[in-house]
């Protein structure tokens, strides 16, 4: 197996174009997949020595997050905590401290596990993905990107993400078999635009319900333009159960997840609305 360690994005793209190699981010998934044979790359392009990919910064009304920013770095970022709370929450609970120190947000998308913790918050927050290949650069909404198969072209590199800073409130919750070191069995991220007591707009994303994390457009529509109160919360619970029912069909986990999602949904909203229906 070949190994490349480029020092710039341009160099990484050139190597990707010239060889059939795989990009290596933190490696917490890829190293494992190489060992159990799930991945058999002919070469690795290690992105660990490209400083620009690690940056987390505010640019023109967006949070820009480099693909190689680790979950630990995101979880320690005041900028993320203030403006992308759901993502910040997900970064506190993903894996373990050791994994959060190594695993990256770009790798989370590149690997694209159904249970990827970073994706539902990014979806709910309206994140766009910054991609680059020899053909050029583009920003693609994450929700659009996740409907593509394969996710990325062979030589396309995830440069990073951008999340609009728009005053929306957000939250994330997941269900695992234990608190630490547990792969999400179910995760929910919610972002809401609140005007006074009214919920103007809502985005709800689910993880570990089907092949990839997804944004529920119908749920967003159903819950938008209503007053934020206990009735709104209960309507949301019923709607989200319906979405899980539709997404999972006759799968063995369906009855369990349909029930469990109501609790996870409430928990995701805990920082926004209390059980009693008042704003948190």
């Amino acid at each position: 197996m070949k190994y490349f360690q480029p020092y710039s994005v341009e160099e990484a793209i050139e190597i990707a174009h010239a060889s059939e190699s795989t990009f290596l981010a933190g490696g917490t998934d890829l190293v494992l997949h190489m060992r159990n044979g799930k991945a058999q790359p002919s070469g690795l392009i290690d992105l660990g020595k490209i400083p620009v990919l690690r940056e987390i910064k505010e640019v023109d009304g967006f949070i820009e997050i480099g693909s190689m920013a680790t979950f630990a770095e995101l979880g320690n970022s005041e900028l993320v905590a203030q403006n992308a709370y759901a993502l910040w929450q997900a970064c506190q609970s993903m894996g373990s401290p050791q994994i959060r120190n190594q695993a990256t947000l770009g790798g989370n998308l590149g690997n694209c596990s159904p249970a990827a913790d970073g994706l539902p918050p990014l979806l709910a927050l309206g994140a766009e993905v910054h991609l680059i290949s020899q053909e050029g650069e583009e920003f693609e909404p994450l929700s659009t990107l996740l409907s593509r198969t394969p996710l990325l072209g062979q030589n396309t590199l995830i440069l990073g993400f951008r999340i609009p800073i728009n005053g929306w409130q957000s939250g994330f919750a997941k269900l695992g078999r234990r608190r630490a070191l547990a792969i999400a069995r179910l995760s929910v991220a919610v972002a809401v635009e609140i005007n006074g007591t009214r919920v103007e707009n809502v985005r709800v994303a689910l993880g570990a319900v089907g092949r990839r994390a997804f944004l529920s457009e119908s749920l967003g529509r159903e819950l938008s333009g209503l007053d934020l109160n206990g009735a709104w919360l209960e309507k949301g619970v019923l709607e989200v159960q319906q979405i899980v029912r539709e997404a999972l069909g006759a799968r063995a986990s369906a009855p369990y997840k349909r029930e469990a999602v109501s609790g996870v949904f409430r928990e995701a909203l805990a920082s926004i609305i209390t059980e009693g229906g008042t704003q948190a």
Partner: peptide, 23 residues
């Protein structure tokens, strides 16, 4: 990467040395 028995400190951060390539 589930058990942490292989934990080492790399540049001031704990990592699972079973999930990090030597390179």
């Amino acid at each position: 990467g589930e058990c942490g028995a292989c934990t080492v400190i790399m540049d001031g951060k704990t990592v699972n040395s079973c999930l990090v390539l030597a390179v």
